[in-house]
Design a protein around this nucleic acid. Structure first.
Lengths: 185, 185
DNA sequence: CTTTAATATGTCAATAGTGACATATTATAC
DNA sequence: GTATAATATGTCACTATTGACATATTAAAG
């Protein structure tokens, strides 16, 4: 998956691994995260596969700054991936639910403390979606043709809307769960 | 993580890898999935680590049926994991959002088709949560002391409630997104 | 000027997860 | 009774992901 995220961003403009890391952190990280270690190794592999080419501005004494550019092969791979629709549900993973599932033998107050910590974290996350998020998309977005940005924004906004809806749902569920547990003694 | 799910279930009763696979499929799979290949290899590793012991009912001509039992070390590891609260947000992954994020250059109708497929899938998932789900928990649950089942049920129900809230949120977002896209031309 | 922090690029070992392959046993259908 | 499906147990190669380690450059602070 990271492969297609990298192709997707590089399809706008050539960039270094670090550029991609920054952009991902400010955009897709909320629904697909990657450490820089994975980004660098994946870029190298993609170059081997012929999806990308790279160049270092060889002033030799400077730090490398390897700039990656998407190839026609890479663009074809991206397009093929886009055309193939997702026809299944993902195997969602939620560590908190795992913990809750096996919490019957824990002290209620201990579980409540844990849920309250989560409540605070999700409250913060919701604040993030409500405020700074859209600006980041604009500031960090790679330079692209101005006439298309409007359409891009529509799709980006949809992912933000999802994030907000998700956090609101999560908070409501946490409140309900905390209430139920509080009345359990 | 799978390690603690296995410890959690084996803490109720000794079981084989296949038993665990079945129980996971009917319970935690909705928030933590595992293939049987991973379950078998993880069980073997956990036995090496001293968290489990295993026995095969050696009728020799029969298929092995390796029954795993949690050790005191395993119970201690489970208890330690339970006590250590989760203090961070997970790095959520959502392939659909990745695809949507990079869908600005796709034909609107193609994206809509994909979203409608997802709508159908999530509708089915919600039906699942609304009907069969709680029964499965009861039928597939390992035998445990009857007096504690009530408390267990409270916690299991919370994870089901989350699943339902999640699918409802997802469907509402899909509807909203489909509407917005429909009015985009 | 020089220490310090922030920026930037990478490698590596280990763990987690996927999906295909292999194969044996038990139950069911015909 | 036998073909077929369902049950059951495992291995293996590969890919993905994590988190620690290493290190160099540039900016800022004092």
């Amino acid at each position: 998956m990271l492969k297609y995220i990298l192709l997707g961003f590089l399809n706008y403009s050539p960039m270094t691994g670090y550029d991609l890391k920054r952009i991902i952190d400010h955009s897709t990280a909320h629904f697909w995260h990657a450490y820089h270690s994975q980004i660098y190794t994946t870029l190298a592999r993609m170059e081997d596969e012929g999806l990308l080419t790279s160049e270092t501005d060889d002033s030799d004494d400077k730090l490398s700054r390897r700039v990656y550019t998407i190839t026609p092969t890479g663009q074809a791979a991206l397009a093929a991936w886009q055309r193939q629709p997702l026809t299944s549900l993902p195997h969602g993973k939620n560590e908190l639910l795992v913990r809750l599932f096996f919490s019957a033998d824990r002290k209620t107050e201990e579980v409540l403390d844990e849920l309250r910590i989560q409540r605070r974290l999700h409250q913060q996350q919701l604040e993030l979606y409500n405020h700074i998020y859209l600006d980041d998309y604009l500031n960090e977005a790679p330079p692209t043709e101005q006439q298309n940005v409007a359409r891009e924004m529509v799709f980006w906004q949809m992912t933000i809307d999802f994030g907000r809806a998700y956090e609101q749902m999560y908070l409501a569920w946490l409140d309900e769960t905390i209430n139920k547990l509080t009345e359990l003694d």
